[in-house]
């Protein structure tokens, strides 16, 4: 594993290198998915090129986390194909799925560090579980990864002693430990102050370029994603509703995208969860409702 750690020490300007490989790493074709009866994804198709950073946006509950779950094989679609590096994820057996997942890195919203292990042991976890490297080599690798996220000094701390931003960076170091081909980020910026957001955003871009990864970043943070993404997609109505470049997002007049970009409360994305008209419900005219509705 060659590790260009040196190149990561100095501040790298956030320059978006255009995707060098045009061929897709992920290809999702007509995927349908429903929780119980409620459809979440309805015929979603998407292809992600090798080497790009793709920002996935969409309203709360639009199925962004669900999409990552489907790509990681944690949940199965009702219909459709999810090809990752040529393999159809939903059809893989456990062994093949696990083999594929060793080449994934996933960053969960709040880091999901193992709370009973120290920072060092958290980052060492993938090496100890997936490789037979001697402990001395593991030690060096862990320190290099921690150095890459600027937290070598925190190696001895427990996760409970970290701030949210630090925890996110440790989790990032853990996620890239095995030099994955694909990184999945679920809302990596939530709950971070602007500085930490900037640090994590730069890291995402830097790691992507330094290791030749492909990254899917689910986020609500338009600013951050515009800075680092090569492409932005917006999920709505269970599909890829818009597929834009960051420049498009800044200039477009599309009402839907503008609502996101400008943070308007109501617009094409409704503020209300689907419900019967308020007056009807207050007057007890409908039966359905959160409390079983009005009595007849």
């Amino acid at each position: 594993m060659p590790l260009p750690a040196a190149c990561m020490d100095h501040e790298m300007s956030v320059v978006k290198s255009a995707p060098t490989h045009p061929d897709p790493l992920i290809e999702i074709k007509d995927v349908h998915f429903a929780y119980d009866e409620r459809p979440i994804l309805r015929g979603l198709s998407l292809s992600v090129r090798k080497g790009e950073v793709l920002a996935v946006m969409g309203g709360s509950g639009s199925g962004k986390t669900t999409l990552l779950g489907l790509i990681g094989g944690r949940i199965l679609p009702n219909k459709g194909k999810i090809l990752v590096d040529g393999q159809n994820v939903p059809k893989l057996d456990r062994a093949a799925l696990y083999a594929l997942r060793t080449r994934f890195g996933m960053l969960f919203q709040f880091g999901a560090l193992f709370t009973d292990l120290s920072v060092f042991d958290n980052v060492a976890f993938p090496y100890r579980e997936q490789t037979n490297l001697p402990e001395s080599v593991i030690r060096d690798l862990v320190l290099l990864k921690l150095q890459a996220v600027g937290l070598r000094g925190a190696a001895g701390l427990m996760p409970s002693q970290l701030s949210g931003g630090m925890a996110r960076r440790v989790a990032l170091a853990r996620a890239v430990a095995l030099d994955p081909m694909l990184m999945l980020y679920d809302e990596p910026f939530t709950g971070l102050d602007p500085i930490s957001t900037g640090i994590v955003a730069r890291l995402i871009r830097r790691l992507n370029d330094a290791f030749g990864l492909t990254s899917l970043v689910v986020t609500h943070d338009l600013d951050a994603s515009l800075k680092i993404a090569d492409r932005v997609i917006v999920l709505a109505e269970g599909q890829v509703y818009r597929d834009l470049t960051p420049d498009d997002v800044r200039t477009t007049t599309d009402a839907f995208v503008r609502q996101f970009a400008d943070g308007l409360p109501d617009g094409p994305v409704p503020f209300h969860y689907p419900a019967p008209p308020l007056l009807d419900q207050l007057l007890g005219k409908t039966v359905a409702g959160p409390n079983g509705g009005g009595t007849p």
Binding site: M106, A112, F114, T115, E129
Partner: peptide, 22 residues
């Protein structure tokens, strides 16, 4: 339960380590 709530189990599963076994 807390490991589940804080995605630690999901994270382990995504790292190709079977949480039932581990």
């Amino acid at each position: 339960g807390l490991m589940q709530a804080t995605d630690q189990i999901a994270a382990m599963d995504m790292m190709a380590v079977n949480p039932i076994a581990r």
